[in-house]
Design a protein around this nucleic acid. Sequence first.
DNA 1: CGCCGACTTCGGTGGGCGCCGAACCGTCGC
DNA 2: GCGACGGTTCGGCGCCCACCGAAGTCGGCG
Lengths: 248, 248
Amino acid sequence: MDDNAESLAGWAALLADRTRASFCLALLDGRAWTVGELARHAGVAVSTASEHADRLVAGGLLIQRKQGRHRYLQLASAETATLIETVATAGPPVPPAPVVSLSAAHRRRNLAHARTCYDHLAGHIGVSIADALFNSGLVSRTNGLVVTSRGNAWLTSLGIGLDKSGKRPVVRECLDWTERRSHLAGQVGAALCRHAFDAGWIVRIGSGRAVKVTDAGARALADQLGIIAVATDSPGAARAVPAGARRP
Amino acid sequence: MDDNAESLAGWAALLADRTRASFCLALLDGRAWTVGELARHAGVAVSTASEHADRLVAGGLLIQRKQGRHRYLQLASAETATLIETVATAGPPVPPAPVVSLSAAHRRRNLAHARTCYDHLAGHIGVSIADALFNSGLVSRTNGLVVTSRGNAWLTSLGIGLDKSGKRPVVRECLDWTERRSHLAGQVGAALCRHAFDAGWIVRIGSGRAVKVTDAGARALADQLGIIAVATDSPGAARAVPAGARRP
DNA sequence: CGCCGACTTCGGTGGGCGCCGAACCGTCGC
DNA sequence: GCGACGGTTCGGCGCCCACCGAAGTCGGCG
């Protein structure tokens, strides 16, 4: 029991610091962040962030990849991510926060429904969009992940152009941590997200990652992709049903 | 992001202390311990233990029940137990613990083989029992999880009665963290575990959660459920094979 | 080659907290 | 009533560690 307790405590200690917790939560988006980004995100000095990164890597929670003068950090594995989410969303506990809760639960539901993951869409809505693009043959994954010619035409019709020679992958799958399925990242994911904002399909809820589908957005998604979506904050709503995809 | 990090950190902080971790691990056996017992178990002064108990209760990890001059502590819920197990058995073994291993590995094998989870049986043996009950039609999950009439008869033959009107679910599935499959909890899981202790089918190994199947227990399990089990500590043993279930 | 920028290392500071023993408080049993 | 006993409260000690700024390192770019 003795060494076991040590082990459990050591594990938990990694997460038991506000700054490190903030890192892990940020890294839940699956991306690799640099030390500087993490420092800015958590609001601490770069030197401090560097030391925390050391500890997290040493503890096995994160892995690092050095690239030029950057040091990229990401979660060690999907299991790690699951673990962090488990603890983070665990029970009502927590020392601070005596009441709140109602709005907290509401916020969580919003997050699960629609949010940004870095620069693309995630949550139920993100997964639904990915499904719709696959089902309607705009994106195909039979031979790796590619945008079909029909897909290109559709994107062009939205005013979106892709940079095939660029460094960034045109389209990429990104595991969604609330849905446990893929949504789309890469140039396509980012462009669609940007377009959704620009066209007023979605708006941010507050300052976090959560977004809300507007009425106009719901209509547009139905028209374009056959997705039935409702505004996140209407009562009993948090739901988006991918219908049999229609030709865009 | 901010309050979320705080929350995660606060949660983890509860587990991030050697002594508190030791408490929680001890309490995983589902029993209620007194402050004094926990203090002795962890090797700290009673005053120290008392303060730790305060924190764990305040944090919602434990609940307490005062009785005379004793203060009994136990895990707040089965979910809490699951959470602790998740973190405890999680990923990379942790910062410390360089070698140790042989006895540690042995102990872990014991744990994986048969242990208590809160108040019911877990590990390979727990999963085997669940399998046997499903296969022999004593418990069915075709229409939700229910004890069949034959199942009820069998339980009665063991001297186990169920409280159908009670608050606690009659039978519940509980994910086993070493097997990654379900074992049985709820009233049935608890009653079977209690019966196994009472009838001498299993005995505790030391003071922890690990249990060992006795020779008599192995015979009984084979007779009753067609499970082939061997005592945990016989060499190369840690194994329990669910055979084609026989009528009990 | 020299500058810039990302990151690391290092010394120093402060606060938090884990620990204890001593004093205190309630309950139990005589 | 008194003593024994389980538990709590309190003051104090010491360590650990999160934080910072300044100096140093190293890769990339002009």
